[in-house]
Design a protein around this nucleic acid. Structure first.
Length: 560
RNA sequence: UGUCCUGUGGUGUAAUUGGCAACACGUCUGAUUCUGGAUCAGAAGAGUUUAGGUUCGAGACCUAACAGGACAACCA
């Protein structure tokens, strides 16, 4: 059903700069009229909203130009990777609504990569370096100063071949030797100063097991992987811009299909931690329930929070693609979510901060069933019955003993409508010995029920409610703004980002909700009338529904 | 004191490739509404980092400056 939506999405009018590049290549027939992209995550963590931008871009380009898009796992560093991550990545990409044309792994190319390395050695373009990590680092110099050549740089081809084979066969200890490309130690681009191609790592790989003990570095693996797959446009983020000359160098040196690397600015969201490293720390330190904690900016977290794939695709489309650094305001993401949910989510009445309201003139032990529409934005969703009685729960915030001029909900002597029910008038307030309000006494006004003769009567406000005799308890997690209320501007000096996070970014409260919801499966999302959108969490049990607040209504709804 | 990239309202993204800056979010009005939501109507807000230059004409081209970002992992 998501696939259906995706086809109905509007086509953008103006081209982004990547589309311009593609159209130019198409018109010049650079790649035989083909467009082939790929989404290449390293399976070392869960995907987040930033990846969603990249996914929508890569799959979107393929779709727009009738091309293909691969899912490729950049699994060249077994120390950090795990199958758990590849599984989650596949699930998240699918959930977002995309199907990849091919599922590939960089690790499948290890044999080819190895023989290409041998080829480069034979051509005198690569050598084995025995220097320590420290010496290699020193020899590379600094960005403003050229590096110096390694004393192992001019070994014979035979010796290099022999040593490299030894590396592959596990004859040397981790870190004792590396294979380097022989380029230019004086290049102003650090990445061209004899970059490392292979390192020794006697670590089990999640796919190749112990078959290999040398692993290719990103720069040596990525371009060639693109090449093998026949990628035409290798879209990546800005920080890889300086890697492009090296990407090109390997393709040229090997004389293989040469894709075009194009870089765009990654997504930054206000108040949102987007670094995989930090997100991993949150998970490991158990500051969140897991990668899919609804406060996490991960795709799985946002899914659990009730965000829809359609809204996330819309968001990706709306923010656009460019090369300048950017910080998107959370309000735009929230707008996309509300826009989508307003049409899709059924309404329900829930009271999250209850106070008792008693209708003195309503008969005791008498109840009636009222009709409520499930979604005013989509009348085809029908109506439901809700029970009404003498004692009700209403939102504490909907009553003010001494109202301010702008307050037009319930206050002594004032009239207000109970949604789908009667207009009521407040008579008195019942307090305990300490002066706290324990109940509000009202009279209902006859014939003012929805649809009845007096129902046209004007009142300033409408409030929601739940019948004390019928309502069910529910737990609501009031999640703060995405995702941990972290703002680098406010962060205190010398503290880690963890210290600077708002510890109250998830408040759990108990309230009351209509007894029968249309759908009680996890991820079912409702709009709590006048409050916000909430979705049912997987932690729900038969006796207690747990909700995550997806997003508030604009201006906070009734919380205003 | 290096190389590369980028600089358009508060935030993003555009501008038919040189013809006095558009769209979205946000903000603020008003109308309407049995959700202070939604919907509808409207407003404010940039003269495009700066200074020169080319041109009848520049946000777009050139030069310089300034500002921000990236690059010194046997990470990706």
């Amino acid at each position: 059903m998501e696939q259906e939506n995706i086809l109905n999405e509007p086509i953008k009018k103006s081209l982004n700069f990547i589309e311009e590049i593609i159209e130019k290549d198409l018109s010049e027939d650079t790649y035989q009229g083909k467009v082939h992209t790929r989404f290449p995550p390293e399976p070392n963590g869960y995907l987040h909203i930033g990846h969603a931008k990249s996914i929508c871009l890569n799959f979107g380009l393929a779709k727009k130009y009738n091309g293909k898009c691969n899912l490729r796992f950049d699994d060249t560093n077994p120390a950090k990777e795990d199958v758990e991550y590849v599984d989650s990545i596949k699930e998240d990409v699918k959930w977002l609504g995309f199907n990849w044309d091919n599922e590939y792994y960089a690790s499948d190319y290890f044999p080819q990569l190895y023989s290409w390395a041998v080829q480069l050695i034979k051509e005198g373009k690569a050598y084995v370096d025995d220097s320590s990590q420290e010496d290699i680092s020193k020899g590379r110099g600094v960005p403003t100063q050229p590096g110096t050549e390694s004393i192992y740089r001019n070994r014979s081809v035979e010796e290099n071949l022999d040593l490299f084979e030894g590396m592959k066969n596990g004859e040397f200890a981790d870190g004792s030797r590396v294979l380097r490309a022989k380029i230019d130690m004086t290049s102003p681009n650090m990445h061209m100063r004899d970059p490392i191609m292979y390192r020794i790592l006697k670590t089990e790989h999640h796919r190749t097991g112990n078959q290999w003990c040398i692993y290719p570095m990103y720069d040596y693996a990525h371009g060639q992987s693109d090449s093998i797959e026949g990628i035409t446009h290798s879209v990546c983020t800005l920080e890889f811009e300086v890697h492009r000359p090296l990407y090109n160098w390997f393709c040229d040196a090997l004389a293989i299909h040469h894709p075009k690397q194009v870089e765009f600015a990654r997504l930054n969201l206000s108040y949102t931690v987007m670094s995989k490293r930090k997100l991993l720390q949150l998970v490991q330190d158990k500051l969140v329930m897991g990668w899919d904690d609804p406060r996490m900016p991960t795709i799985s977290g946002m899914r659990r929070r009730g965000y829809t794939p359609e809204s996330m695709r819309n968001f990706a489309e709306t923010i656009g693609i460019a090369k300048r650094d950017n910080t998107i305001e959370l309000s735009l993401l929230e707008f996309c979510v509300r826009e989508n949910l307003n049409k899709k989510a059924n309404r329900t009445m829930a009271v999250l901060n209850p106070i008792k309201l008693i209708l003195d003139n309503y008969p005791e032990n008498s109840f009636e069933e009222l009709e409520a529409v499930n979604n005013p934005e989509d009348l085809e969703t029908g109506k439901r019955k809700i029970s009404f009685g003498r004692e009700l729960w209403i939102e504490r915030d909907d009553f003010m003993e001494e109202p301010s001029k702008k307050f037009f909900r319930l206050s002594p002597g004032n009239e207000v409508r109970l949604k789908y029910a009667y207009i009521i008038r407040c008579n008195s307030v019942e307090k305990d010995s300490e002066g706290n309000i324990v109940a509000i006494h009202c009279d209902y006004i006859e014939n003012t029920k929805t649809g009845e003769s007096e129902s046209g009567r004007k009142v300033k406000g409408t409030i929601h409610w739940a019948s004390v005799a019928h309502a069910r308890k529910a737990e609501a997690r009031l999640l703060d703004k995405l995702f941990l209320s972290y703002d680098p501007e406010d962060a205190e000096e010398g503290k880690t980002f963890l210290d600077n996070m708002n510890p109250e970014s998830m408040t759990v409260i108990e309230g009351y909700i209509e007894p029968k919801l249309i759908n009680e499966s996890p991820l079912a999302t409702y709009q709590f009338e006048r409050i916000g959108y909430f979705c049912i969490d997987k932690d729900s049990t038969a006796d207690k529904l747990v909700f995550n607040r997806t997003v508030t209504l604009k201006d906070g709804g009734a919380k205003r």
